[in-house]
Amino acid sequence: MAVFTPVSIEELIPWLSRYDVGQAQEIKGISSGIENSNFFVTTDQGEYVLTLFEKLTAQELPYYLNLMYHLAKHNIRVASPIPDRDGGILGTLCGKPAALVTKLDGNWQERPSPTHCAQVGEMMAKMHLAGKDYSLFQPNLRGLSWWQETMPQVIGYLSEENAAFLQEEVALQDAFSRTDSYGRLPFGPVHADLFRNNVMFDGERLSGFFDFYFAGNDTWLFDVAVAVNDWCIRLDTGEFDDARLTAFLEAYQRVRSFTADEDAAWQTILRAAALRFWISRLYDFYLPRSAEMLTPHDPTHFERILRLRAASTASLSL
């Protein structure tokens, strides 16, 4: 999250009058993240989150917003869009598509424990199963084709060694995506960005997932890999913390068992998850957009994780 488009309280008040959420009292920009303009909105009835979409169009947004709404109706703990009085969940504010969503209680966990990881793993598995009957389809827009399109834009900023490594990893994922075993991996709507700061805990209880605006249809295993590459690592080294990783995977498997194809693909998909964020962080670091509140993430973090995953073996312990 960030603020690319400022919104004043004077601009908010008439826009918010379409919703049954009370009178606007305060609007405050949210600094974390890198894609949209986000704000905490306080009214005389409660607190909400307002998002102005900077890249996604009004034609693309129904996939994301309706997915959140669908999951909430299936008892998955997620931030959910709030309909206006006409039943719409997407509007326009300051010339940008905009949505108001519920604000989850609590805070995100900077230093998660195995207990936190287990709750995230369990809820992710439930989310995957709940998404099976979601009617809309959209590919993961930050998937392989995006990596291939973006690599030429960032590779010139890299050392010769890192440029070669990046090309090799993209080629490996391209080859794997063409295999029969990849085609057999369970597939459906995924969050695709479930980092620590996209999950809220109220005390020790998971209160919900949010920021679904990188969601798309992909392998469920990719979603798991993205999550454990953040939730279950030591941030200073990128290495897995075995207790947290075991807690996450075991909790997930109590809801949905991994397949033999998923076990065989695990290391490759862990590499794919690290590669996706290395490329996106390279792009955001070297080709940043202007924003009032934005600090690009250091891309070397995911380069390190990718090198670790490429050099190791991994199993889902089937």
Rank of each mutant, 00 (worst) to 15 (best):
T51L: 06
L52A: 04
E54V: 09
E54R: 06
K55V: 13
K55I: 12
L56M: 07
L56C: 04
L56W: 03
T57K: 11
Q59A: 15
Q59P: 00
E60K: 08
P62Q: 11
Y63E: 09
Y63W: 07
Y64E: 10
Y64T: 10
Y64R: 00
Y64C: 00
N66F: 08
L67S: 10
L67P: 04
L67N: 06
Y69N: 11
Y69W: 13
L71E: 02
L71G: 06
H74R: 15
I76C: 07
R77Y: 10
V78Y: 04
A79T: 00
S80L: 02
S80K: 10
P81G: 05
I82G: 02
I82W: 01
I82Y: 00
P83T: 05
P83E: 05
R85T: 10
D86T: 04
G87C: 06
G87M: 09
G88T: 08
G88N: 15
I89F: 05
G91C: 04
T92D: 09
C94Q: 09
K96Y: 07
K96D: 03
P97Y: 06
P97M: 07
P97C: 03
P97S: 05
A98D: 02
A98N: 03
A99R: 03
A99G: 03
V101R: 11
T102G: 08
K103S: 12
L104I: 02
L104F: 01
L104S: 04
D105C: 10
D105A: 14
G106I: 06
G106L: 11
G106C: 08
N107T: 15
Q109P: 01
E110D: 13
R111P: 00
P112V: 08
P112K: 01
C117Y: 02
A118S: 10
Q119R: 06
Q119I: 08
V120I: 11
G121F: 03
G121I: 02
E122S: 14
E122R: 14
M124H: 02
M124F: 01
K126T: 06
M127S: 13
M127F: 10
H128A: 07
L129N: 12
A130S: 11
G131N: 08
K132H: 07
Y134A: 06
S135M: 10
P139E: 14
R142T: 02
R142V: 08
G143L: 04
L144I: 12
S145K: 12
W146G: 03
Q148E: 15
E149C: 01
T150C: 11
T150H: 04
M151R: 11
M151K: 08
M151Q: 13
P152N: 10
Q153N: 12
Q153R: 14
Q153F: 01
V154G: 05
V154K: 01
I155V: 15
I155A: 11
I155N: 05
G156V: 05
G156S: 04
Y157W: 09
Y157S: 11
E160A: 15
E160L: 12
N162M: 10
A164S: 13
F165S: 10
L166A: 06
L166G: 04
L166C: 07
L166D: 01
Q167L: 14
Q167N: 13
E168C: 10
E169L: 03
Q173H: 12
A175R: 14
